[in-house]
Amino acid sequence: MSIHVTVYGAESCMKCTNTGTALRLAGIDFELVDVNVTGSCEQPACVSCRW
């Protein structure tokens, strides 16, 4: 069974980068949707980047 994950975050966010690293090390296929680039209101913002 193949798992694909979509990570909504920001490439400039260390927590999002660490999440991507953990997924890569676990062999899980993922796509990072950079909310800073897409700017879509329909997509959640990077929660870990908000203080």
Rank of each mutant, 00 (worst) to 15 (best):
M1I: 01
M1Q: 08
S2E: 11
S2A: 05
S2C: 02
I3P: 06
I3F: 09
I3A: 11
H4L: 04
H4G: 08
H4S: 14
H4W: 00
H4P: 02
H4D: 08
H4N: 15
V5K: 12
V5A: 14
V5W: 04
V5Q: 14
T6M: 11
V7F: 10
V7I: 11
V7C: 10
Y8C: 12
Y8P: 06
Y8N: 09
A10P: 08
A10G: 15
A10Y: 07
E11F: 12
E11H: 12
E11G: 15
S12D: 13
S12M: 07
C13A: 05
C13R: 05
C13D: 15
C13L: 05
M14G: 10
M14I: 13
M14A: 14
M14Y: 10
M14T: 14
M14S: 15
K15H: 03
K15M: 01
K15R: 02
C16A: 15
T17E: 14
T17G: 04
T17C: 07
N18E: 14
N18Y: 04
N18K: 14
N18R: 12
N18V: 00
T19M: 11
T19I: 01
T19V: 02
T19D: 03
G20Y: 00
T21N: 09
A22I: 02
A22K: 10
A22R: 10
A22Y: 07
A22G: 05
L23P: 06
L23M: 01
L23G: 00
L23A: 01
L23T: 00
L23N: 06
L23V: 00
L23F: 00
R24Y: 02
R24D: 11
R24C: 01
R24E: 14
R24T: 08
R24M: 02
L25G: 09
L25H: 11
A26E: 09
A26F: 04
A26T: 01
G27Q: 03
I28F: 06
D29V: 00
D29R: 08
D29A: 11
F30P: 07
F30C: 04
F30M: 04
E31I: 00
E31R: 07
E31L: 07
L32F: 03
L32E: 03
L32R: 02
L32V: 00
V33R: 10
V33F: 02
V33D: 04
D34E: 08
D34P: 10
D34L: 03
V35Y: 07
V35E: 11
N36E: 13
N36V: 00
N36I: 00
V37M: 10
V37H: 09
V37A: 15
V37L: 13
T38V: 13
T38H: 12
T38F: 02
T38L: 07
T38P: 01
G39M: 06
G39S: 03
E42S: 13
E42P: 02
E42W: 01
E42F: 05
Q43S: 09
Q43G: 03
Q43L: 13
Q43V: 07
A45L: 14
C46Y: 03
C46S: 03
V47P: 04
S48L: 05
S48R: 05
S48I: 03
C49N: 10
C49T: 06
C49S: 15
R50T: 06
R50Q: 15
W51S: 13
W51V: 04
W51Q: 15
W51F: 11
W51C: 09
W51Y: 09
